[in-house]
Design a protein around this nucleic acid. Structure first.
Lengths: 359, 359
DNA sequence: CTGTTAGCGCATTCAG
DNA sequence: CTGAATGCGCTAACAG
């Protein structure tokens, strides 16, 4: 009977919501005052070994976890940073975050992510949410927009340290890290030229918006350097200038290019998703890759090595950009650096696979 | 002179970190006391139209934003929930979050994401971080592990409302939402059988761990129902039983299956990434898909329609699972439901493409 | 309808 | 080395 009742009670207790232990609880159990417990737990100030042990034991017993909310209110440190991403379907995002986390985990910060879903309203709302929750710093990896920049400026004014990735900004105190997309595009188009191609298409952006895209600029520069005229009809993309090109965009683009009287013999897609869409369109049209048309992408997503045929593409140092940005941010948060905005631009690597060169 | 000085001062002020306005600041400007401003801003309690207008104007002028940290400390509401994801390279994750956000955005909650990176330590750390920061609720979409369940149990004991997605748990008060992977696998394997296949392989899990995987169980059940013996050698996968199978796993698996004396004529890969790896291996080995070997995947990732050939797969209602979980969670947070754990299982859809049926 | 009081949990400051 | 007082910004619970 007794046993039965006991286990019943235990069940009740573990089922019921138990208020987490506070610092005061720990202090009471350890027979000290809250402040002393705080010092023992945070290794700050002088505490006798004896007291420290008692406090540590009490904390362990009560499963004490500091309330970060209360801590932030008092000390203005949340020990958390926010990362704003455009979306997360993207292999880019995972690697980026892993680079960022690596740095912040070590320093005892939590990393929280929010998504802009490629919409300016969502981006603004997410940045505000981070600010309202008083994160210690922000890493922003969404593509630049006028309104987004305005919000960033406000955050900078509020004194929230911010670093951007892949989004150059000219706001005082905001560091930024990018990869050299221009050079990556230049290299891949040069590669196509060196294979003998001169009719080279660009898929993923509408002609109207093309000049704002560094990957397009690199493409155009490589053509010009080789003395090849840039043919407007060879640039195809969705009319609405999305921040991102999808496999559908690639499919449509390739279809349109193949429809020209003198279609390109090689195509550079703005990213691997568009390149995969282009591959699909080529197959569907009965074009052999690379014999009838060579196709190259950008980003080196993990699947790029597994397409048919495997995709020539440009790798950018994603995790490295993430950790570089994280280091910049940590410097700012901990006031190890307070100077003018730092800009870091990292190189990209051409990766040649069978979509441009037959085996 | 005066003008020059003024603009200089303005510049200084906007460049310098400005402490965000507090409720007290707003109240002072509006000529009321903080409590009144709070009521006016939160539509709680009765406030005269006159006062409300004054407060609203003052808040707008000062660009007042409530400090969520302080609010949580007092009212125990952070107006934020946490979503724990296994990783984010996965299209699954994006859709899931969009389903979740849709529900919580409407209700005025922010959604923050953390990643487990498919590691138990990271998962534990992320859940703890959410708990320490006192989120109002949690959506957990990582795969079940003993330690993970232990942490979830602790959170439940602390009274943090939690809902799992794709991870059945037997913890009091934790609702869960899943899709019927068993049925999806059953359907796709039946589809292969109806095409005349009887030697059907399974790629993505080691024989030792296969029985824990519902997708495998559905595969085996379909074979048995058709009177086809389950051949152990037809199940291939990495030895370490990962939570996830990659394109590399699919590539290796297909290669091993093709090596058998009597290789399968059809293959069901545990997910689309593995299926894409299998497609690549088949092409490399000179096997035509679907004539020499039919290949099917699971998840219907966006790229599945753009592989060569396009991939037969199973679609699960991802965003719907996200919003269903979000509704469960909101019910719990706002105490509209306090009963026993709810379980929701949603159906999957077979999507037939050319990787199993020649055109 | 509006103001006063008090306290959430913690860490900074100043005394012992 | 340890304790006591104080306040971060906000809102629940009472008074007026």
């Amino acid at each position: 009977m007794t046993t039965g009742q006991d286990s019943f009670k235990v069940n009740r207790r573990s089922a019921k919501a138990t208020r987490p232990a506070t610092l005061a609880d720990v202090a009471r159990v350890a027979g000290v005052v809250a402040m002393t417990a705080s010092r023992a737990l945070n290794q700050s100030g002088y505490v006798s070994q004896n007291v420290r042990q008692r406090v540590l034991k009490a904390a362990a017993k009560l499963e004490y976890r500091p309330n970060m909310v209360a801590r932030q209110l008092k000390s203005q440190r949340l020990s958390a940073i926010g990362v704003l991403l455009p979306d997360i379907a993207n292999p880019f995002s995972t690697e980026l975050v892993s680079g960022v986390k690596q740095v912040f985990d070590e320093s005892g910060y939590s990393t929280f992510i929010a998504l802009s879903s490629r919409s300016v309203e969502q981006e603004t709302a997410s940045l505000r949410a981070f600010a309202d929750h008083r994160v210690d710093g922000l890493i922003v990896a969404t593509r630049g927009t006028a309104m987004g920049d305005e919000v960033l400026r406000n955050l900078a004014r509020q004194g929230i340290p911010t670093v951007t990735i892949g989004r150059p900004v000219k706001i005082a105190g905001i560091d930024s890290v990018t990869a050299d997309h221009w050079q990556g595009a230049f290299d891949v188009v040069n590669h196509l030229i060196s294979l003998g191609h001169s009719r080279i298409g660009f898929i993923g952006i509408s002609p109207a918006d093309r000049l704002s895209l560094r990957r397009y600029q690199g493409y155009a520069a490589a053509l010009e350097q080789a003395g090849i005229a840039v043919t407007p009809a060879y640039t195809v993309g969705p009319p609405e200038a999305p921040a991102f090109a999808t496999q559908e965009d690639g499919f449509d683009g390739m279809t349109r290019l193949a429809d020209l009287k003198r279609p390109p013999t090689a195509v550079f897609a703005r990213n691997d998703f568009a390149a995969i869409g282009a591959l699909r369109a080529a197959h569907k049209l009965g074009l052999r890759v690379p014999q009838d048309v060579a196709i190259a992408g950008f980003d080196n997503i993990p699947l790029a090595a597994f397409t048919t045929p495997p995709l020539t593409t440009v790798e950018q140092p994603i995790a490295q950009q993430g950790s570089a940005a994280a280091k910049f941010l940590l410097d700012r948060i901990e006031k190890r650096y307070t100077g003018t905005a730092r800009k870091l631009c990292m190189p990209c690597n051409l990766i040649v696979r069978e979509s441009t060169t037959a085996i």
